[in-house]
Amino acid sequence: MSTKLKASYNPPVFSSFEEQRRHLKQKLAASFRLFSRFGFDEGVAGHITARDPELKDHFWVNPFGVHFSQISASDLILCNHDGMVVEGKYPVNRAAFAIHSQVHAARPDVIAAAHSHSVYGKSWSALGRLLDPITQDACAFYQDHSLYDDFTGVVLEIEEGKRIGKALGNNKACILRNHGLLTVGKSVDEAAWWFITMERSCQAQLLAEAAGKPVLIDAENARATYETVGVSYAGWFQFQPLWNRIVNEQPDLLD
């Protein structure tokens, strides 16, 4: 991103934890509405979490059993890293706690993490492979995603979450074999965008490989492209048009 562009579009700055928390919860609710719009929901599976700006060992998450399309900011629940709901009237998804508590614990730089059972993400994950740099968009993950090469059933135990956190490492994303995608970011915007574009990159590679043998982008150009489309600011910025669209269409999500 150019210096001029960064100067024109910057992430917001807040004067209080309360203001920052309200904004974070609204971005989280918007992400769920968008995930529903894109078809990333499947039953009660899937979750996006955001670390509380004041209580660093607590995270906000979607209420268990509420459809993504119906989630508003006020529906979100606050969970501590012992798995207890400390604010909100709904229970927490046990798998959400097992995975996200350990990702947040392993990555203090991460504000948000996203996971769902999206069709192309889980299809690609069944191959047990990393994505190749075959498109400009896929270069956002060039040398910046990993593979959790195991599947032991529904993730309900902390130890499994720890293994996923270790497999993620310092990357922005991890492919969970036979399961789906996990993305993280320094903002809700970033984590949600990485998931959206990674899902589409999985779709693109599946389609390309079904048609023939994709031509890979060479390492030098893949790295140069990554420095434009794969950095943290780019992830935040790419989410903004989607945020504007969903808030305009469904303003009740802000409540």
Rank of each mutant, 00 (worst) to 15 (best):
T3S: 14
K4T: 15
L5V: 09
K6V: 11
K6M: 11
K6T: 12
N10L: 15
N10E: 15
N10K: 15
P12M: 03
P12V: 03
V13E: 14
V13F: 14
E18H: 07
Q20A: 13
R21G: 02
L28F: 00
L28V: 01
A29Q: 11
A30F: 10
F32R: 02
R33P: 05
L34C: 02
L34D: 02
R37D: 12
D41L: 04
G46H: 05
G46C: 03
T49A: 01
T49I: 05
R51Y: 02
D52P: 00
E54D: 09
D57M: 00
V61E: 05
H67N: 13
S69M: 08
Q70N: 13
S72H: 14
D75M: 12
D75T: 09
L78V: 05
C79P: 10
H81C: 12
D82Y: 12
G83L: 11
G83Y: 12
V85G: 06
V85D: 06
V86M: 11
V86N: 13
E87Y: 14
P91I: 01
P91S: 10
V92T: 04
N93H: 10
R94N: 14
A95I: 06
A95D: 05
S101W: 03
H104L: 09
A106R: 03
R107C: 02
P108N: 09
P108T: 08
D109C: 08
A112K: 01
H115R: 01
S118E: 02
S118R: 04
V119P: 07
K122A: 09
S123R: 03
W124P: 02
S125A: 15
L127A: 08
D132Y: 12
D132P: 08
P133F: 05
T135H: 06
C139I: 04
A140H: 04
A140R: 04
F141K: 01
Y142M: 08
Q143T: 08
S146P: 08
L147G: 10
Y148P: 06
D150S: 12
D150V: 13
V154I: 13
V154G: 08
E157P: 00
I158E: 11
E159D: 13
E159S: 10
E159I: 04
E159W: 06
E159L: 07
G161P: 00
K162E: 14
R163C: 02
I164Y: 03
I164P: 00
G165R: 01
A167I: 01
A167M: 01
L168F: 01
G169V: 04
N171A: 13
C174E: 04
C174A: 09
I175S: 06
N178Y: 12
H179M: 14
G180P: 02
G180V: 08
L181S: 01
L182T: 06
L182V: 10
K186L: 14
S187V: 03
D189A: 13
A192W: 08
W193E: 00
E199M: 00
R200S: 01
S201A: 11
C202G: 06
A204Y: 11
A210G: 10
K213Y: 11
N221L: 10
N221I: 07
R223K: 14
R223S: 15
G230E: 07
G230Q: 09
G230M: 06
V231S: 05
A234T: 12
G235K: 03
G235L: 03
F237H: 15
P241R: 04
W243A: 10
N248A: 15
N248E: 13
E249L: 09
D252T: 12
L253I: 15
D255K: 15
